[in-house]
Nucleic acid binder design. Structure first.
Lengths: 194, 194
DNA sequence: GCTTGAACTGAACACCTGTTCATATAAACT
DNA sequence: AGTTTATATGAACAGGTGTTCAGTTCAAGC
């Protein structure tokens, strides 16, 4: 057997990326190329038509995710007023993470499995995102409408708090998305002294 | 060659546990028994004098960590007043996590690599710890000195925020431990409306 | 209808995996 | 000094790893 009817690279390509999302469930090292291939419905060798190697599969997944996060954040209408901007940040973060639980998980858990060069690239993207929040906190601090003990520490603390939503939120759970978003936004604002 | 001078189980046993902490750096699946053995200074086969298998090594590590966390929390002098209790919780959490960055990392990252039975046991311990915080929040809510949108959500959010300290804090960094502890305690209190 | 080439297979490569076990050593006890 | 026993070795096991590649198949272009 070889090429099957109706299977083209435009179909298999995305399937490979989706298959690689299995990294989220069991971890990069624990998921073999053969397992990904099986999920895609293909033999292991065929994966190498879509990625040069396993590491690139992980890296591309994380890079794409971070770029989408940054692009999504850039596309938001940002209020001038720092408290409103902070609320916007919190709501956007939670909302974005609702829709991509697997990618978020990978982006935060598999950093240690990136080769140094790839790690540096992803870290740089992450830093960009953090800087967006820190800028808001600094401007709020300067104008006196926000009050945090240390802008860098507060940036880490708030992002950690927000990202934690993926650890427990499950579709169809006790709280609807909008409520979760409201609650997180409220807590972030209070934590930052808004 | 075989048994070496001055090497006993009382020495090798702890070394095995310390060697298994390599799970923190590269992940459970990525660390082989031979790598752990090499770190201990022993052949792979000898590890099985100290653990029935690799999974138990991970499980015991996590179980011990969680039990120590619970024991440490139980040993604290807990104030009656909810705001003071919340501050105590935050400070204890941060302080405890300062000293065990690797174990904390493993406890939060390797849950998915536990077999179902072991996972359930660790989750139960984690739940105990969370309940301690939630109890504080509820009593504060009841007496009106604290105000959170949802005690369960707030529990997750605050613990995520506090645990995040291990992601960036490094010994000898910009901020001393005491300052970090102060800042986190302050933000937690504010976030909970204290 | 024939040729081309993208898409895929399946076997092979060298090496690594967790785990077991017969064997060897050195310390402790008699 | 001789025996026992805890501690460790190193080879072996069956199977899995990422990756390569000659060969096969099928849709599209002429």
């Amino acid at each position: 057997m070889a090429r099957k009817t109706g299977s083209h690279s435009e179909i298999t390509g995305p399937r490979v990326r989706r298959g690689a999302a299995a990294f989220a469930r069991h971890g990069y090292a624990a998921v073999s190329m053969r397992q990904i291939a099986a999920e895609v419905g293909v033999q292991a060798g065929a994966l190498y038509l879509y990625t040069p190697d396993k590491q690139s599969l992980l890296y591309e997944l994380m890079k794409t995710h971070m770029e989408e996060l940054l692009a999504s954040a850039a596309g938001v209408g940002w209020p001038e007023e720092p408290r409103a901007a902070l609320e916007t940040f919190a709501r956007h973060h939670v909302r974005f993470h609702f829709d991509r639980p697997e990618e978020v998980f990978i982006a935060y858990m598999e950093l240690r499995n990136l080769e140094p060069q790839n790690f540096a690239a992803i870290e740089a993207l992450r830093r960009c995102y953090e800087d967006r929040l820190e800028t808001i906190l600094r401007s709020g601090q300067a104008s006196g409408v926000l009050s945090v003990p240390d802008t860098r520490l507060a940036t880490f603390a708030l992002i950690a708090m927000l990202t934690g939503v993926t650890n427990w939120y499950r579709e169809g759970g006790r709280l609807p998305r909008a409520a979760v978003e409201d609650h997180y936004a409220g807590m972030v604002l209070k934590a930052a002294g808004g």
